[in-house]
Amino acid sequence: MARSSLTREQVLDTAAALVRRNGPQALTMRALAAELGTAVTSIYWHVGNRESLLDALVESTVQEMGTLRPAGRTPAARIVSVARGLRRQLRARPHLIAMVHERGLTERMFLPAQQALVHEVHAAGLRGARAAAAVRAVQFQTVGFLLVERNRERSPVQSPGEGELWTASAADDDPALARALARPTDPDRLFEDSVRALVEGLLTGPPQQGARRRTGTQERETAE
């Protein structure tokens, strides 16, 4: 591929694919040139040196993470859709996300998802500290779930496994519970169920203790 027919977008897309497959250490200018079928000098012409290329990949990843679009008829459904989309995007590019984190841009990367959540919790009637707590709870649930999920995927084969450990006696004499816990986990369903339960509690639960104290203070001031 001649330099004149190569674009910066093609270089970045191919570099991102290499990182997704094999990690940042596999991204060399020679490997990228071979993948593109061009000369190394052509890569330099389009994106500069390797550090400049990595910076461009990080910026591209941050921008891609800002493309989440809520879906659903209710605020609760749209909040769940944001969490679902965030998990999907994070799972699709773990090495790139790690690069974003190493460059201190994690908070900026999460800002669009947080803003989408803010819009939906406002639509559900939450304001102030309660709205902030809801946004953070959904973000932490999503990222925390993903970290546990990735750890389980990478862990060695367990012996004994869950199927051997969960007996009726281990489950407090609840054989149905023991059978359920002995079965392999369906992470997609577990994620949906856990996020939905969290969101329902956040949107319908009582105000936080601090909010109740402030309300009581305001009522006393009004009475006086």
Rank of each mutant, 00 (worst) to 15 (best):
A34G: 06
P206A: 13
V47D: 11
R154H: 07
Q25G: 07
L117Q: 07
T41V: 12
T74D: 05
E64P: 05
H119D: 14
V11H: 06
H122M: 14
A137G: 04
A211E: 15
L126T: 00
A176I: 10
A180K: 10
I43C: 08
A71T: 09
R152D: 08
T185L: 15
N22R: 07
R150H: 04
V62L: 04
G163M: 06
A116G: 05
Q63E: 08
G201L: 00
V62R: 15
L36C: 01
T41G: 15
G210S: 10
H119V: 15
V58Y: 07
L90G: 03
S155G: 07
E192R: 10
D188Y: 01
L181R: 11
A171N: 08
M1Q: 10
E102A: 12
A170W: 05
A113N: 03
A56V: 01
L68Q: 02
S5M: 13
A171T: 05
A33R: 13
R212Q: 13
L27C: 00
P187Y: 02
G48W: 02
R183A: 05
L111H: 11
T142L: 07
D13I: 04
P75T: 04
Q139M: 15
G128F: 03
A26T: 04
P70C: 07
L126N: 00
F140L: 11
P206S: 04
V62N: 06
H122G: 10
G48F: 01
S81N: 06
E35V: 04
Q89V: 03
F140Q: 09
G66V: 07
A71N: 00
Q218S: 12
L96S: 06
G128E: 09
V143I: 12
S4N: 12
E200C: 02
A134I: 00
S4E: 11
L12K: 10
A133Q: 13
L146A: 07
A17C: 10
S155M: 05
G144V: 06
L105Y: 03
V80N: 10
A17D: 13
R69K: 14
D172N: 13
V157D: 12
V195R: 01
V80S: 04
I79C: 01
P175Q: 12
A39V: 14
L126P: 06
M29W: 10
A123I: 00
Q208G: 14
A168K: 13
L181V: 06
I79N: 11
V100F: 15
A182R: 03
S4D: 14
W166I: 04
P160R: 15
G66L: 01
A134V: 00
R103L: 00
A129D: 09
T217A: 12
E107T: 11
A170I: 14
A34I: 08
G163P: 11
L6A: 00
R50L: 09
G205H: 15
V143C: 08
V135C: 08
M109S: 02
A178H: 11
F145P: 09
E102N: 06
S159K: 15
S81F: 01
Q209T: 13
R103M: 01
E102R: 12
L181F: 08
A168T: 09
L6S: 01
A176L: 13
A171I: 04
Q63D: 10
Q218F: 08
V143N: 09
S4Q: 12
P24W: 00
M29T: 05
T38D: 15
A168R: 11
G85K: 01
